[in-house]
Design a protein around this nucleic acid. Structure first.
Lengths: 113, 113
DNA sequence: CTTAATACTAAGGATTCTTTAGTTCATGGT
DNA sequence: ACCATGAACTAAAGAATCCTTAGTATTAAG
C-alpha cells in the first residue's frame, strides 16, 4: 500500500469483494464493453493500470462508495468515506457540522461539550 | 463542474488560491521541473490534462488537503475532507467514531444523545 | 479428467500527458 | 502611451500510459 498505484487497486478490490461480484460483473455494470471488462478490472486491481476519472466514478457508483475512496491512502479517512456513503442526507449534514466544530478551538476544554 | 475533468481542476484552483501561491510556485514546491511546472499546473487547472496520482499526492501535500479532495465532486464531502485535514489525530479519531455512530439506527430518536 | 467460471497476462494500437517554446493578459513604472 | 515584468495560458510533437484483443492460468464442481 505504500507504493504508487496500489492505493487504487487495494481499495477497488476491497469494495468489489464487499459487494460480492466478479471482476467482469463489476466492469459490465460500470458500462465497460463486455469484451474488455474483465481484463480492465483485473488490470486495475493488480495495479497495472489506472482508469480515467469517469470510469472511476462509474465503478464507485456500482460499488456504492465515494469515488474519492479509491484515492485515499489513509485508512482512517477511507473509513470515514465509507461511513459517509452510508449516511442519509441529514446524517451527512450533521457530520459536516461536527467536523467543522471539532476543528475550532482544538485544545480548549472549557469550550467543549 | 458537472463535466469530466473539471472536478480536479476546480478543486486544485480553489486550494491553490487559498494557499496564495502562483501556478509555477505550486508546481516547483510539488517537485515538478521548473521549466514545465507552470505549463503543467495550468493544464491541470484548465482541465486540459490530469496528473498521475503521485503528482496529485504531492500537490495535495503542498496545498494541505487530502489528495482525495481533488477527486470529490460533492461539495459537502469536499468540505468534510478540508475539515478532516485541519483536525488533530485526536479530532480525526473522534470524528470517525461520530460518523460510524450516526450511521447506526439512522432514525431511532430514543437511542440518540 | 473435463468443463466452466474466474482471474490474470502480453503486446500493440489508441489515447493521454509532458516538455518545449512560445503567446497573451494584467499590472506598475516612467 | 510605452515598456517591462510576472503570471497565466497555449499548440504541437515526443514520451508515457491505457485499452483492446487474444489468449493462458487457476480454481472448483461434476
Amino acid at each position: 500500500m505504500s507504493d504508487v498505484s496500489s492505493v487504487f487497486s487495494a481499495r477497488l478490490k476491497i469494495a468489489r469483494l464487499r459487494k460480492g461480484i466478479t471482476q467482469m460483473q463489476l466492469g459490465v455494470l460500470a458500462q465497460i464493453d463486455e469484451y474488455s471488462a474483465s481484463a480492465r478490472i483485473n488490470q486495475y486491481e493488480r495495479g497495472k493500470h489506472l482508469p480515467d476519472f469517469n470510469t472511476a466514478e462509474r465503478l464507485a457508483a456500482v460499488l456504492e462508495v465515494p469515488a474519492a475512496y479509491f484515492y485515499t491512502r489513509d485508512d482512517a479517512l477511507a473509513a470515514l468515506l465509507l461511513a459517509w456513503s452510508a449516511l442519509t442526507p441529514e446524517g451527512r449534514a450533521r457530520l459536516l457540522v461536527l467536523a467543522e466544530t471539532l476543528g475550532e478551538t482544538p485544545g480548549d476544554k472549557a469550550a467543549e461539550g
